[in-house]
Design a protein around this nucleic acid. Structure first.
Lengths: 345, 345
DNA sequence: TCCCCGTCTGACACCGGTGTCATAATGTCG
DNA sequence: CGACATTATGACACCGGTGTCAGACGGGGA
């Protein structure tokens, strides 16, 4: 099996390289007859253009990278799967790039990534989506990027999110309507902008239902299971004990559930528990966790789709013709499982 | 900021392109003085070679792809993280390629991947590691590949595994030594070769301890939580009920735990449960699951490391000089948590 | 001194595509 | 029917590196 290049195709079809290239890229000014000849040659020789050569000539790699630093494996794989779907649809490939937000040298790390892999664009996922320095850096370098689940909308870049504040509001409201008044809250990681959003939703629900905010019911977490366990330790030993706990994600909620079970508390009768994200664990434990499901795949898919669009159009001479800042908000969905019910008394 | 190419460096250092290239690739026959001049130019111009151009000239992409089809998110991310570690260390990048084993066109899918991304090598993870057709296909196409956790060792390709049979043996033996005699078993996905290995370990432990194998205690699963739930349904309603359940992975074990809890059975007193893999869920639930921890990252890291070595040496003229079939087996570790204890009576 | 040989270096073609431009063929209008 | 615009096509340089080969240089043996 010998290699089929554009030259083979050209001589087989009896035309020049350039004409073959025209057909490949759907350029105008190719007669129907010629086009047919070339297409036939493609098929008969089973030709696939070499993306590397293409990349060199057009200064493109057809690769985008996905940045993340997230403790939740399921979140990561959902991001990846959404990104991949969009990539494959447009002939792109995806590079994954986990890296630490707090690393002493995030920007250096990214710079090196850009240098060594020549990616065409970047998808920022939490907690990078709202990292001001990084965003500024990418803008200055003119690297196309899109943000997933970012909060700070600056009207200049692609951003796809879901409404965390509203989700947290709804789940808190659910607890309130079940009759809970003392609802503890476990915050997420301070670097994630979702953390503040979810906290805000919690407070707004309390406020709208005339329930006083009690600071001692709020614990600092960081989205990890471990931090949830620590917070649970404090919350479950309060006197009086709150009748419900709303944790900013499912891992922390699972930790609360485990701690409660170990203390022989019945969930949801003795204490109701709610989480956020609809991670697999939410339905793998008993009782299943009431939580909020976000369309993570879809968010990422859309973000990447628009990113690729931007990359491709930046490629045309038209240059910046369309400063169309795409900002999309998708709906999150409340999922009720067994971990929430009315308080006992 | 203008682009720095090999030409800029060459003229800055006052040498030819080719000499710069020699320095870049650590080729011999460059005088120390010249080398210093070029290295100085690298630093002062802050030069990074363009991997795409390099790739075109040497017919390499410096990218390898990781194939998987696995329901366990944590397993996937562990694979990825091990593969990435090795890739980054050697200046490679990683492409992820989830795809369905059962797809009508696995080989077409892979062929397309090879065509469109020109990857330098492939990492096969379960269940692809033992996919005979795929392996034959890759050999025929002369695509370098390495296998993670494969069972069929054919002495011709790189393969890094851990001993599943032994792990399953140990965990079964643990249950037996605790006093269990009726130990149910839930099999994994039939396409995964680990499934048979784990089953074999279970049977060997029974045999070595003089316990008769009871076919009705064995259920067919497929590694998914859902299949675990189905199997649990059957097993927990057997009369007499077995005193222990060993599931082929932690998700299925978690499903058994959930089902048992819903039936008001106490774990481990009424029924002991063991899993496999040490997935996060094993320690996120109560009681924590006794399980087997495999060094998945390390396995993948080693596999990729040797894959890259093979790729790089195949690049030299030496051609196949070293038919060194690398097959490594790493240790798995038994982790005891609260889900196992002696039977009640 | 001459010849041979190993070391060091650069000119040049090449990898497999794309961009630019010139030119030929065709159509359109006054 | 000639002037000119438009479409179709190919020659050639170019992207940024690497491989091949020839030539310059210096040292050692005859």
């Amino acid at each position: 099996m010998k290699k089929i290049t554009i030259n083979s195709v050209a001589s087989y079809a009896g035309v020049s390289k350039k004409t073959v290239s025209r057909v490949l890229n759907n350029e105008p000014n190719v007669s129907d007859v010629t086009r047919e000849k070339v297409l036939k040659a493609f098929k008969e020789l089973d030709y696939t253009p070499n993306p590397i050569a293409r990349g060199l000539a057009r200064n493109r790699s057809f690769i985008i990278a996905c940045l993340y630093d997230n403790p939740s494996k399921s979140y990561i794989t959902r991001l990846q799967s959404g990104a991949l779907a969009a990539c494959h649809q447009h002939g792109f490939n995806l590079l994954i790039h986990p890296c630490e937000l707090r690393g002493q040298a995030l920007l250096d790390n990214i710079e090196q990534l850009l240098q060594t892999s020549r990616i065409d664009g970047l998808v920022l996922t939490p907690p990078f989506s709202d990292h001001g320095e990084l965003v500024a850096f990418l803008r200055q370098k003119k690297v196309p990027f899109a943000r997933v689940a970012s909060v700070k909308l600056d009207d200049e870049s692609i951003s796809v999110r879901s409404n965390d504040e509203q989700g947290a509001f709804e789940i808190t409201e659910l607890l309130i309507e079940l009759g809970h008044k003392d609802i503890a809250f476990i915050k997420g990681h301070p670097d994630h902008s979702a953390t503040e959003q979810r906290f805000n939703g919690y407070r707004r629900a309390l406020a709208e239902h005339g329930i006083a905010y009690q600071e001692h019911l709020v614990e600092e977490g960081n989205f990890s299971y471990h931090s949830g366990a620590d917070s649970a330790e404090t919350i479950l030993h309060l006197d009086p004990r709150p009748t419900a706990v709303f944790a900013s994600n499912d891992y922390m909620a699972a930790a609360v559930l485990k701690a409660a079970t170990q203390m022989d508390l019945k969930v949801p009768d003795d204490i109701a528990i709610a989480g956020f994200d609809n991670a697999p664990i939410a339905r793998h434990i008993w009782p299943g966790l009431t939580t909020i499901a976000q369309p993570v795949e879809e968010m990422t898919r859309l973000a990447v789709e628009h990113l690729i669009e931007q990359i491709n159009q930046g490629d045309n001479g038209d240059e910046e013709q369309q400063k169309e800042p795409l900002q999309i908000t998708l709906e999150a969905k409340l999922i009720c499982r067994e971990s929430t019910a009315a308080p006992k008394s």
